[in-house]
Design a protein around this nucleic acid. Structure first.
Lengths: 334, 334
DNA sequence: CTGTTAGCGCTTTCAA
DNA sequence: TTGAAAGCGCTAACAG
């Protein structure tokens, strides 16, 4: 692989000059510039990002850490970040944290060791303190999906409680009173918050929260299947089911139908996230929109603005969820 | 950020010694080793992967190029590669090619500039010749989803024609004769191959291929919606619909239901890929299994074996699709 | 077992 | 406008 040295030799100029034509900024006479360009071309020269990083102390790369590389939610987030960053010639180095503290820290170590200029983190297991410490270490970080008081400026988060509330309120407004709830893993903050929102709505409508109508799911399709099966076994005759995310809603709906329930007539269902395929399940899923694209885009802009000094628009730290009404909810009858 | 030099100073040993304890291999006395470790600990030392890469000529990282960062198919592939690689302490640098030749080449340039030890490529637009040339440049490459004769050893591909054939044969066996087909973008090889398989099955059953029953879709949900709408407008009374991937099948099914068609009674549908959510659409989608996980895993093993010299199992270059029967197909009646 | 000494390929003053 | 030279943080002979 040709080096800058080979180029300088072929072009008959110094290293420095070659470097200058690569980094557009400096003044180089048109003539020598052409010589250098020609030399690069004929050698098939490709600058080493790695050597450049060593010498210049920045890598034009930002580390992106998400829980999983698959799944509609993370996929959208990652995709948006990558696109926005790449539009500005910075590259994303992506790693998965698998919702596990050790793996998340590991991944962060990895990204740091690659000397990323900044980190965009969607982490679930690592503590707030860890992140606060990390933020002090020098590499700028922006955190998606969490709101840490001491790091408020670095957080891009959703009002999950409101989302839970909106979902719940919607079925309550439709007359339902026996409402089952499949939450996410309750050690996750967002799962707790969504559930809290649900409880607030219930309280507002004077309906008592029933432990038997709560199932702690996994945030995956299978969790929805298990949840529905379990809840039905409680024989509590619920007419509406709230799921803490769309995947579980899809699983629950499939399971419900397998057991002979018609939706939305026998059972109204609401999801959460508004992932792409939620409109392709049957019935079309009523859900809560999680503006993850906008949030991911904001995170990318945060980095562009504060790290790469592009003049981006103002940063919005907190986003609001909204209700997306579709076919899976009907009025309570009888 | 502390450097190896700081560590060596604090520990009272030379650079080389510090380097030695980092790279387990060499012999270092237990005593000095502990001193070094302690120094690292107290300095919060984190070796620079970038400097290491420059000095050692390999980066313990492999570039992974896929068309999109979102979507169930790519997500699964990326996830599997990353997991397998990380299990062996090598990291994936992921980039998106967006099914566009220029962007794909760009992304490859990027990965090469980061001096990846190898490349795992899922590319759709770049030519075979380009890849053949690339393969000669030194960086080992493995190609997923294409079978290039000159690069047969580097390819991990699916027999798409067989997949199309199996899907088609299944509905033919169920008595259907008027079969509509929503293909992928026909400039993509896999779309062509799947369609070819369909035609072969038709021929085998002596049913003539009808252009009016073919719609060229986008491989996305929306393409399925458009396809179904268009096909219905042809008034050709088809009783079965083959979709070249599950996303389009999901879109088409939703559109069909919106137009009052019951499935599978009025219309049988078959997808392709067997993505995670295909079993959660209604009716559960009959599809062709694309063993993308196994293939992704194989690609990772290829790299582990040939680049990192781990002793992995034998490499399988060609994979076979299989039929997954579910509820979306029924026997043709009347 | 440990230290010395060149680099790896590039950026970046400082002079010319 | 251009060149010389000193690193960036690490690895890898080669000695000792």
């Amino acid at each position: 692989m040709a080096t800058i040295y080979d180029v300088s030799e072929l072009a008959g100029v110094s290293l420095a000059t070659v470097s200058r034509v690569m980094n557009k900024n400096a003044q180089v006479s048109e003539k020598t510039k052409q010589k250098v360009l020609a030399a690069m071309e004929s050698l098939g020269y490709r600058p080493s990002a790695i050597a450049k990083g060593l010498a210049s102390k920045h890598t034009s790369s930002v580390g992106v850490l998400i829980s999983e590389l698959h799944g509609p939610f993370y996929g959208m987030m990652m995709s948006e970040v990558e696109t926005e960053l790449r539009n500005h010639d910075v590259h994303a180095i992506i790693a998965a944290g698998h919702s596990d503290a050790a793996k998340e820290e590991d991944a962060i170590e990895f990204l740091l060791s690659r000397r990323c200029d900044a980190l965009i983190l969607y982490v679930e297991s690592v503590t707030d303190e860890y992140l606060v410490k990390l933020a002090k270490k020098g590499t700028p970080i922006v955190i998606i999906g969490r709101n840490i008081p001491k790091l408020a400026k670095n957080c891009i988060s959703l009002n999950n409680e409101l989302g839970g509330y909106l979902a719940s309120k919607h079925v309550l407004e439709n007359g339902h009173r026996k409402i089952a709830y499949i939450s996410g893993p309750l050690w996750k903050d967002d799962a707790q918050e969504r559930l809290a929102g649900h409880k607030r709505a219930l309280a507002e409508y004077n309906v008592k929260f029933n432990e038997k109508l709560l199932f702690e799911g996994s945030y995956q399709e299978e969790g929805g299947v298990e949840g529905l099966t379990h809840l039905l076994a409680q024989r509590a005759n619920f007419t509406a089911l709230l799921c803490a995310n769309d995947e579980m809603a899809a699983g629950a709906m499939t399971a419900a139908r397998d057991l002979g329930l018609a939706m939305p007539q026998d059972l109204s269902v609401v999801g959460f996230d508004n992932v792409a395929y939620s409109r392709y399940v049957y019935p079309k899923l009523c859900t809560i929109n999680y503006p993850i694209r906008e949030m991911a885009n904001m995170a990318a802009h945060w980095v562009l603005k504060y790290v790469y000094k592009h003049n981006a628009f103002d940063i919005q730290n907190i986003f609001e969820p909204t209700l997306v009404t579709r076919d899976s909810v009907s009025k309570f009858k009888r």
